[in-house]
Design a protein around this nucleic acid. Sequence first.
DNA 1: GCCAACGTTGGC
DNA 2: GCCAACGTTGGC
Length: 154
Amino acid sequence: MNYWLMKSEPDTFGIDDLFNRPDQTEHWDGVRNYQARNMMRDDMKIGDQVFFYHSNCDEPGIVGIMQVVRESYPDFTAFDPDDKHFDPKSNPDKPSWYMVDVKFVRKLSRNISLRELKLKPELADLALLRRGNRLSIMPVNAEQWAFILGLENA
DNA sequence: GCCAACGTTGGC
DNA sequence: GCCAACGTTGGC
């Protein structure tokens, strides 16, 4: 099983929005970066666990856990001229962009903030903390996953 | 293929 | 609002 971290701005789509979705499930559309797309398309498998990260907000950090419940399929929002993430170069015959479905697992008992994560030498290699990394989807290894969960009740 | 200009992300 | 760090675009 693989572990991931996915970013979203809570003003647009936060952990509570996922919680309130029918079946507590949503497609993760709008990813328009090739590296992130490749991870979703090729590597994200059903059952993979994902940290939900709130970005661009008062206290950026990890707020919950979700899991992959559907593997990659074309991101149809790329075909819709009225959609914010419309991409004229993508079409149903040859889609450029893919997405997965994720399901709410649980909220963390507290927000494990970016500020806190940065203080931990154990997380020096976490992709989220690497200089200049703006990817919206990043891998987390098993050790990092366990360490971060260990912070929850610390 | 190079690279300058531009747009976006996202922490602060 | 600022700005660093990219990724993308397009002229050449």
